[in-house]
Amino acid sequence: MEIATYKNDVWGREVLLGVSWDLLWLVCVVALVIIAGHAVYMATQQRAERPSQEGKHVQRHEPIDRIMHWVMAISILALLFTGVLPIIGIEFAWLTLHWIAGLVLTAAVLFHIIRSVLQKDLMSVWISPSDLKEALDDSHKPGKYSVAQKGMHAAVTVVTLLVIVSGLFMFAMIDTPWWDRTNSLSESTLGWMFLIHGLTTLALIALIAFHLYFTLRPEKLFYLRSMIKGWISEDELSANHDPERWAPDDSA
């Protein structure tokens, strides 16, 4: 199976066209296999006792962060649906919706980055060598985010930034209310942009599948609640986090 597709440019030279969308099915299948494998594995494991959600609440996500998360989530899903459905044969006028969602995502990501930098909260989600202990030692609990969450965040960050940057270059090549399409990219550069956009889209599909799966896993469901309502219980906190490493504000 090819990773990229090629076309002839205006002078007949072979240039990149973009990602080979045959990979879409491969990615879906591989993601589902991994998820199924994990689910089966987990089913064979002894089920740990769930911490109680009763008791005192501690704030895990501020309202603004929750809003931004859902804005990003919705815009990414909108981008995926508008971008991918036409490729699999469901035809509709997708382009305008796609770039509007793309702008929303870009704005949300920018906001998130700026806020994170200003809040000096970057480190909470940054993977450090000490995080590796978590993976090796069950007794070693994480701070605010588990290494898996940090890994997921890092992967989504890289992929989303790439999809946004490549998307913005492509945005310059269509008509919008603010400008007529430019001819700013050479065909080979444009091909690279399409390839990056396509590959990162595929990566996003896999990452989102994993994210959804882990979110919906029973033992992790409280994280979903925290992303909706903002809090986790003290029980959940102590069962999953090291208070030395994360001392959340308990005013929630």
Partner: peptide, 19 residues
């Protein structure tokens, strides 16, 4: 015979500043 959008490509040659 250019590989434009209509031919399955990823660009339009006509809608360009000097197209």
């Amino acid at each position: 015979g250019l590989s434009c959008y209509r031919a399955g490509g990823n660009t339009c040659y006509a809608d360009t500043p000097d197209g």
